[in-house]
Structures are given as structure tokens and as C-alpha cells.
Design a protein around this nucleic acid. Structure first.
Length: 153
DNA sequence: CTTCTCACA
DNA sequence: TGTGAGTA
């Protein structure tokens, strides 16, 4: 359906023998860079860790990947690497599916809409000529309500 | 990736 | 009993 809208650049699929540094199934991979204030700590997690953070089973994450709901980066060995935003996205999916009882097609549709609405809110707030109008403020406020209801804060 | 279970209509 | 979601 609309799932093909999400595309994350995948690196080259070279199946070279890269010595995997202690392939621990639990624990974070890579270091955490604290770039100019810890406003955003970027973590990278293997599927088992990401599943635990999102309170899901690893098989569910594989299925979501296959369905195009979440497209994690891949390592050299084609292992899925989930970012913090991927985990956050998984939590939104869990809310949409568990609480709102949406099926996966509904979830992907809502996620598409969330992205569009987020962009529209940004546009409404971008330039003063727009954001200073009453209509823009009302519209942006309404969209933010919808986004927070969906859980996309 | 395929198979199996479970819920549901 | 066919389909979708999650799991083994």
C-alpha cells in the first residue's frame, strides 16, 4: 500500500568477512556521542535490544520490517540496526495497534499521515508572514492535538 | 523464511 | 474456515 513511501538508504551489501567485535546479543553497539548538549542521545541497537525497549518480540520487528513499517539500518552482516527514532516509532506502532485496534495497513496509513501533518505544522510555523495569522495558529494547534492523540508528540 | 497458534468473523 | 497478527 503506502508502505513503500519509507525508504532508508541501505549501504552496500558486501558480504565480506568483517570480524564482528563481540557480537553480544544484549547491550548497545557503538559509542554514544554527546554532541553539544545531550539533547539527543543517538543509540544503535540490535533487534533483541530494540525489541525489549519497545516491549515487543524480535519476530514482530522482523515482520514490521518486511511490511515496511519500520526500516532499520543494516550492518555489514545485514543485521538490523535500530536507532532511537526507530524504537520511538515502534512504540507509536504499538499504541496504534494495541490501544486503537488498528491493523497494520491502518497503522502505516496513520504513520504516513503523521509525517505529512508534521511537515504541515512546520510550514505553518516557519515564516512569520504565515505563523502570525490567526488561521495558521488555529490550524497548527489543531494538528498538534491530532498528533499528540496519535502519540506522535 | 516457513510454519504454527490464536483470535475473529 | 479463511484471514491477519504474532510467535516458534
Amino acid at each position: 500500500m503506502l508502505a513503500e513511501l519509507f525508504e532508508i538508504a541501505s549501504s552496500s551489501d558486501e558480504n565480506r568477512r568483517v570480524p564482528m567485535a563481540r557480537a553480544k546479543s544484549t547491550g548497545e553497539q557503538h559509542s554514544r556521542r554527546e554532541r553539544s548538549r545531550p539533547s539527543r542521545i543517538s543509540g544503535v541497537y540490535v533487534i533483541s535490544v530494540a525489541a525489549r525497549l519497545a516491549d515487543m518480540h524480535p519476530q514482530t520487528l522482523r515482520k514490521y520490517d518486511k511490511e515496511g513499517l519500520v526500516s532499520p539500518q543494516r550492518s555489514e552482516g545485514s543485521r538490523r540496526l535500530y536507532s532511537d527514532s526507530d524504537v520511538e516509532r515502534l512504540r507509536v506502532i504499538r499504541r496504534l495497534a494495541d490501544e486503537l485496534r488498528l491493523n497494520l495497513n491502518g497503522v502505516s496509513l496513520v504513520l504516513d499521515l503523521v509525517r505529512s501533518l508534521t511537515d504541515i505544522v512546520s510550514l505553518l510555523e516557519s515564516s512569520p508572514e504565515v505563523s502570525d495569522t490567526r488561521a495558521a495558529r488555529v490550524a497548527a494547534d489543531e494538528l498538534r492535538q491530532i498528533l499528540s492523540y496519535v502519540g506522535a508528540v
